[in-house]
Amino acid sequence: MIDSLWGALESGLLYAFMALGVYITFRILDFPDLTVDGSFTTGAAIAAVMISNGYSPILATLSGFGGGLVAGVCTGLLHTKGKINGLMSGILMMIALYSINMRIMSKPNISIYNMDSIFISVKPLIIVPIIAIVVLVLLDRFLYSDLGLALRATGDNERMIRSFGANTDLTKIVGISLSNGLVALSGALIAQQSSFADINGGVGMIVIGLASVIIGEAVFGASNVIHHTISVVLGSIIYRIVVALALRVEWLEASDMKLITAIIVIIALVLPSTRRVIKQKKMAKKRSAEILLVGQKKTMGGGM
């Protein structure tokens, strides 16, 4: 039991990079990017192939990250320069990446069991939190830079940031690229942790990423960017703990996890809007009553 929780913490942190990638597109850019399912495998494939060919695990991991960056640039170009609908450009890239990943791996599954990995010399539970903190600090620092502000504004009010001189095509491409880079980094690390890369390893990643983002927001809040990104990482860990616990329930099978994930995301998407409607109705009632009361006393509120 305790062992599986430590395992959940470890894989939660490894998948957290993927969740942070989804956070960038889904929350910051407001761009539902389905490239994720393909780019996760791209990262895993590049890392596994390089490691099995004797390259250093660090170089292999960074190359996986780079592969994701390139995949993201392609999706971004399709969307901004090709003017293809956002969902569609993601789907197209996801499909294209299947073939590309197959070319990289040249077979559907590569085992790197007993080969070198960044987890060989250092214990995963020591190195993984360090990588997570470094990535979080760099990402947050970037999101508070001039370019990062422009990126955030692109998802918030595109017309405004364009009127202040930001090339929003460029900021979108940068954001989608960075997002898929993180997703691929996650794939590269997961491949080393599980000692294999599989051509279907990325299937359903986008939904898992969304679930992590949403769970993190719901449990830990999101008052600003730093708070939000930390919540996403913690959300990813909670998701893995939920998975670990669900796998111990006898009548559930491992393959049910995708259904459970989908249900978590559906609840999380439906609940806030219903709650908002109810809250607004209540608020409106309360305010109307107040205004009626104030109106009878003939005092008017105002000011800026």
Binding site: S145, D146, A150, G165
Partner: peptide, 20 residues
Amino acid sequence: EENLAMAYARGKQRGFSLGV
């Protein structure tokens, strides 16, 4: 302040230095 920082960057190259 972030909004003002974006306006402040008008006409400049937007790089990695802190916005605010």
